[in-house]
Deep mutational scan, measured.
Amino acid sequence: AQASVVANQLIPINTYLTLVMMRSEVVTPVGIPAEDIPRLVSMQVNRAVPLGTTLMPDMVKGYA
């Protein structure tokens, strides 16, 4: 199964992502692939992302 990117903490709206904020986990539904974690660093979330939430492409500015 493919691992997705999951929030490792509460990520406030407009926060620039860093490695410590994200982890990879096999979840349903599938979100942003874990292999894209390096690409996500320094990208901004466009909403608050609670701890344990799967990151979806529409949550990250400029990802989709």
Rank of each mutant, 00 (worst) to 15 (best):
A1Y: 08
A1D: 08
A3D: 12
A3C: 03
S4G: 07
S4A: 03
S4Q: 02
V5I: 15
V5C: 03
V5H: 01
V5S: 05
V5W: 02
V6S: 03
V6E: 02
A7E: 00
N8W: 05
N8V: 14
N8L: 07
N8C: 03
N8Y: 07
Q9D: 11
Q9G: 06
Q9S: 10
L10S: 08
L10E: 14
L10A: 07
I11Y: 01
I11D: 00
P12E: 14
P12K: 07
I13K: 08
I13R: 12
N14I: 02
N14T: 05
T15P: 00
T15G: 13
Y16W: 12
Y16P: 10
Y16M: 10
L17K: 00
L17R: 00
T18L: 07
T18A: 11
L19Y: 11
L19W: 11
V20E: 15
V20N: 15
M21S: 12
M21D: 08
M22N: 00
M22V: 09
R23Y: 09
R23C: 03
S24M: 08
S24D: 15
E25S: 08
E25R: 08
V26M: 06
V26E: 07
V26T: 11
V27H: 04
V27D: 02
V27W: 03
T28D: 15
T28F: 04
T28C: 03
T28R: 09
P29T: 09
P29R: 05
V30S: 11
G31I: 02
G31A: 04
G31V: 03
G31N: 01
P33T: 08
A34P: 10
A34H: 06
A34R: 07
E35G: 15
E35I: 07
E35Q: 14
E35W: 13
I37F: 04
I37L: 14
P38T: 08
P38I: 05
P38D: 11
R39N: 13
R39Q: 12
R39K: 13
R39P: 03
R39D: 05
L40P: 00
V41I: 13
V41P: 04
S42W: 04
S42R: 06
S42A: 07
M43P: 00
Q44E: 10
Q44D: 02
V45W: 01
V45L: 10
V45M: 06
N46A: 12
N46V: 11
N46G: 13
N46E: 15
N46I: 12
R47S: 13
A48K: 12
A48V: 11
A48G: 10
A48H: 07
P50H: 07
G52K: 07
G52S: 06
G52Y: 06
G52C: 03
G52V: 01
T53I: 14
T53F: 08
T54Q: 04
T54K: 04
T54C: 03
L55M: 09
M56A: 05
M56T: 10
P57N: 12
P57D: 08
P57G: 11
P57H: 14
D58L: 12
D58M: 06
M59V: 12
M59R: 03
V60N: 01
V60M: 09
V60L: 07
V60W: 02
K61Y: 14
K61N: 13
K61S: 12
K61W: 12
G62H: 13
Y63W: 10
Y63G: 04
A64Y: 04
A64G: 10
A64K: 03
A64E: 10
